[in-house]
């Protein structure tokens, strides 16, 4: 956005984006009152709309849609590490050692199910 003559065009786009953002804010509130049948689906729809709104802000207001390669590179790595932080942490939460159950060989051993049950109760 360095050329002066394109500024009015750019602002026209931004005003349109602004209206879109307001519309989607209303939509996201309205949609949150609808039950899509499953809790995760409700969350998914809400986050999808939020992501789209964030995309609009980043792409047009922060003019990332036509930014220099350097900034894409920096943000690309940042995004990757952010995803790594979030998912590896969540993953290691979901993945904890259990006695039996997880291991097919042990599963056949007598009493393994009982042990598994106890372990489950501990958690």
């Amino acid at each position: 956005m360095s050329d002066n003559h394109s500024v009015p065009d750019f602002m026209r786009t931004c005003r349109f984006v602004f209206i879109l953002l307001i519309v989607f804010t209303v939509i996201t509130v309205a949609v949150s009152k609808v039950d899509f049948g499953h809790h995760f689906l409700n969350i998914g729809v809400g986050l999808l709309i939020a992501t789209f709104k964030a995309f609009l802000v980043a792409a047009y207001f922060m003019h990332l849609i036509s930014e220099k390669k350097l900034i894409y590179t920096v943000l690309g790595f940042t995004g990757f590490f952010f995803v790594g932080l979030m998912f590896l942490t969540l993953f290691s939460y979901a993945d904890f050692p259990t006695l039996g159950g997880e291991q097919p060989e042990v599963a056949h051993v007598e009493g393994a199910a009982e042990t598994h049950h106890e372990a489950g109760a501990d958690h």
């Binding site: 804010t25 996201t28 509130v29 949150s32 409700n42 969350i43 809400g46 986050l47 709309i49 939020a50 709104k53 964030a54 802000v57 980043a58 207001f61 922060m62």
Partner: peptide, 22 residues
């Protein structure tokens, strides 16, 4: 300064549904 301001806006766009709606 505007870029920073848009980022603050962007964070709120996530905060709003996450804390208020979902």
């Amino acid at each position: 300064s505007g870029l920073f301001w848009h980022f603050v806006d962007l964070v709120w766009i996530f905060l709003f549904p996450v804390l208020y709606l979902l």
